[in-house]
Computed example of a mutant assay.
Amino acid sequence: MTIVATRWIDACAADDIEEEDVIRFDHEGRTFAIYRLDGDAYYATDGLCTHEQVHLADGFVSGTLIECPKHNGRFDVRTGQAKGAPVCVNLVSYPVRLDGGRVMLGL
């Protein structure tokens, strides 16, 4: 599920995220995961696994998947779609854009 952006929040510098990696971003009591895939493709999802509420920023990014560090469930970072047991509930994904070297998260 993708949410239509109503406002843009400055999440981090584009260079704060290594290629094929993820960082945690907290805003207004919520946790997000900001991903950078090969090159300059940036994505964002909810930051907690839908299975046991573990921070995905502690997980492992491989290709387009994030693997939860607790039970190895996997999600597609581009869509939030659950891709591997034990996860079966998708993550919410959010639009991302680059603006002057900053990663902007659409909420």
Rank of each mutant, 00 (worst) to 15 (best):
W8I: 07
R74Y: 02
A5C: 05
V103M: 12
C12G: 00
Y43D: 01
G101V: 11
Y42V: 00
Q81M: 09
G47L: 05
S93L: 06
R30I: 05
K83N: 07
D26E: 14
R36L: 03
T50N: 04
I17S: 06
R102T: 02
V92Y: 12
D99K: 12
G101H: 11
D58L: 14
L48T: 01
A5P: 08
F32R: 10
C49L: 11
T2I: 14
R102P: 00
V77K: 00
T50W: 03
Q53N: 15
T45A: 10
R74K: 13
R7N: 14
L65V: 10
C68N: 04
A82G: 02
V77S: 01
S93E: 04
R97Y: 00
L48R: 10
L107H: 12
I3L: 11
P69N: 01
V61Y: 10
R97Q: 11
G59K: 01
Y35R: 14
V89L: 09
A57G: 11
V54F: 14
R36N: 00
D76K: 11
G39K: 07
V77W: 02
D76A: 02
E52R: 13
C88M: 12
V89W: 06
V4P: 11
T31S: 15
L56V: 09
E18Q: 15
G101Q: 08
V22A: 12
D46S: 13
M104A: 03
M104E: 01
V87R: 02
Y94W: 02
P95W: 01
E19V: 12
L37V: 09
V92P: 08
A33C: 05
A85V: 10
G63D: 05
P69Y: 03
L65A: 13
V89R: 13
P86E: 07
F75A: 08
D21E: 13
Y94F: 13
L98K: 02
T50H: 05
M104D: 07
E67G: 08
F25I: 11
H51W: 03
G80E: 03
L98T: 02
E18R: 10
T64C: 13
I34N: 01
